[in-house]
């Protein structure tokens, strides 16, 4: 047997393997992409357990994020994970303060209700009167996950891929199960979601957000833990209020990727055929 033929065989084999993989990957991507573009308006009962992941960044991004979330209803968004970059004590501190504010607000509401003797009615257009709502606040209802920085300030572009990769790898456990280690099996659904994939990822554009969303896509691609089949990790990107006519780098990268892409100035409406403008949100 002539030796060249086997090597030729190997080359052909790998080429075939490669092209098969390529086709499979593109088919899968097309499947996920087309599937996600039409948001399946699945009905979810208000008050059912949900986990949202909030990506914080440096000062400006963090500030804006908490302005965005100022009216967060903890009876609907029952468990929150804040993703903070290593060394960013400010953002971690703000997350804790924000959670304390949420808790305080619920305490005041409860006090008011017990004084009035009836639940405070939320007046809505076409309102259905007061619904029973159970707020989820306090240390059991949130956690703060710390990931290494994707890129340090003044870091050379050559080493950036390595630090980004390190950041990416540390995002997987955060997405898959969060940081709260349960010693016993979860006693109810609310505890259960704290260590399940997030239902929603909220971000407004720090570098870490790009990595977190990339990680979520890898999980969706392989449908790990039902990431795609259970329609987990839908993403909402809110471009910074400071961006009036041009997108930020993160924004440009995530324009086609986020499930919802929101801008805060009319000048950016329709960017990439999908940027939505709903007024100033901060």
């Amino acid at each position: 047997m002539a030796p060249p033929s086997t090597s030729l065989l190997t080359v052909t084999f790998f080429l075939a393997l490669l092209s098969t993989l390529l086709v499979a990957v593109s088919l899968r991507l097309i499947f996920i992409l087309t599937n996600k573009r039409v948001p399946p308006p699945k009905w979810r009962k208000k008050g059912s357990p949900t986990r949202i992941l909030i990506v914080l960044g440096s000062g400006g991004h963090t500030h804006e994020m908490f302005y965005l979330l100022r009216d967060l209803d903890t009876s609907k968004y029952t468990y929150r994970t804040y993703v903070v970059s290593l060394g960013d004590a400010f953002s971690a501190q703000r997350a804790i303060e924000f959670e304390k504010e949420l808790e305080e607000r619920e305490k005041q509401r409860a006090r008011k209700e017990s004084e009035n003797g009836y639940p405070e009615r939320k007046v809505e257009l076409g309102g259905k009167g007061a619904e029973k709502r159970t707020p989820h606040v306090g240390p059991e209802s949130y956690d703060i996950a710390i990931v290494p920085r994707a890129r340090n300030i003044h870091q050379s572009l050559f080493t950036a891929p390595f630090t980004s990769l390190r950041c990416l790898l540390s995002c997987f456990p955060v997405l898959l199960s969060g940081t709260q280690q349960l010693l016993e099996p979860p006693k109810d659904g609310f505890e259960g979601v704290s260590c399940d994939l997030p239902d929603l990822i909220m971000t407004n554009g720090p570098a870490t957000a790009v990595i977190v969303i990339l990680a979520s896509w890898i999980l969706r691609f392989f449908d790990i833990k039902g990431a795609n089949s259970r329609d987990k990790m839908r993403t909402i990107y809110v471009e910074s209020f400071a961006r009036v006519t041009t997108l930020s780098l993160s924004g440009a990268l995530l324009l086609k990727v986020a499930d919802r892409f929101l801008v805060q100035w009319e000048q950016l409406e329709g960017k990439g055929g999908r940027a939505e403008f709903h007024g100033i949100l901060v």
Partner: peptide, 18 residues
């Protein structure tokens, strides 16, 4: 955009809270 929906409405829509 007078009948604008706030961020909460968008989040709700993504999660299927209707």
């Amino acid at each position: 955009h007078r009948e604008t929906e706030g961020l909460e409405a968008i989040m709700d829509a993504e999660l299927g809270f209707q």
